[in-house]
Structure formats: C-alpha cells, structure tokens
C-alpha cells in the first residue's frame, strides 16, 4: 500500500469520527450542523483512482447516514459530488488541471476557494433537497443550504490548515 492510500484511509476514519461525534451534534442556533466530512472527497488525490473515489465516497456517505438515521441522503450527495469533482476541477483550475500538481491543501488561492465553495454548495443543496423532499419546502432547503454552506466553508478551511502536512 502506498503512503497516499494509507493517508486516505486515515482521513476517511478521522473525518467520519469528527463528523458523527462532534459536528452532527452541534445544532448551532437549534438547526445548524456543518458537514466538513466531505473534505475527504475534496482532498482525494487529483490523479487517484476514480472508481476508488466513487466507492469510498458512497461508503462514507452511507456511514454518516447510518449514524444520523437519514436514510440515504448523505450517500447520494457524496456520490454525486465525487462524480462531479473533475468538472469542478476544470471549472476552477482550467482545462489542464490534470497535468499540474494541484494540491488544494496549500495556500488558499481564489481557484482553491472557488473549488471548495462550489463543491460544498452542490453537496449541501442535494442533501437538503432529498432530506426535506417536498416542493413546498423549497425555501427551507435554500435557507438551510445557505447557512450550512457558510458554516461548513469556514470549518473546512480551518481543518485544511490544521491537517496541512508539515513538509515544505
């Protein structure tokens, strides 16, 4: 096993544990729960195995669903985000992203910020659409997506800076 595989497994377990033990129980202002566990999908190596990313994202979402009794909403949102990730890379970093060594856990540039933001918005929008699951709740979906996105974004950036590898 290469070191990046081990790093990924470690990240998977750590982010899942943080999510279910701390972040899913925060209930800030009575309804706000951030979901920074999707950092696993964002930090997955750019040139890594695509099937591996899809499968591990599905598993990650399913585990969060299991812990929070939410059916399959996290699994759906995670799989979709994992599938759309290359598109978001292209959108944020330009067409030739695969030939550069893009590492999003380095200095926060506008490209990296837009990539993180668009990923979080996509994930949260799918998540709340499926969780509320009725057309009359569309306003609820939008407000929750907005507030949770802000919260997740701040936490994600903090976490990226905290777990940044020491070697420079």
């Amino acid at each position: 096993m290469s070191s990046s595989t081990i790093m990924n497994i470690f990240r998977f377990i750590l982010l899942l544990a943080l999510q279910v033990i701390i972040f899913s129980r925060l209930n800030l202002f009575g309804f706000l729960n951030p979901y920074p566990y999707i950092l696993f999908i964002l930090l997955y190596p750019v040139n890594g195995n695509k099937a591996g990313l899809l499968l591990s994202s599905f598993l990650l979402g399913l585990m969060v669903d299991m812990f929070t009794d939410s059916g399959g909403v996290h699994a759906t949102a995670c799989v979709t985000l994992a599938y759309l990730r290359p598109t978001f890379f292209k959108f944020s970093f330009g067409l030739s992203y695969e030939y550069q060594t893009v590492k999003i856990n380095e200095r926060l540039s506008p490209e990296r910020f837009s990539f993180i933001l668009i990923s979080i918005v996509t994930h949260h929008l799918i998540l709340y659409l499926l969780e509320v699951f009725k057309f009359s709740g569309i306003l609820l979906v939008l407000t929750r997506t907005l507030f949770t996105t802000i919260f997740t974004l701040i936490l994600s950036i903090i976490i990226i800076y905290l777990i940044k590898p020491g070697k420079q």
Partner: peptide
C-alpha cells in the same frame, strides 16, 4: 459505477 451507486443511494432515500 456512478449510476449504480446513485441508484442504490436514491432507492435508500426514497424508501426512508
């Protein structure tokens, strides 16, 4: 693979 996983997770969601 994506469509398969999406199908499984959507089924779980709608069922719930």
């Amino acid at each position: 693979l994506f469509l398969l996983l999406l199908g499984v997770s959507l089924t779980l969601t709608i069922q719930s």
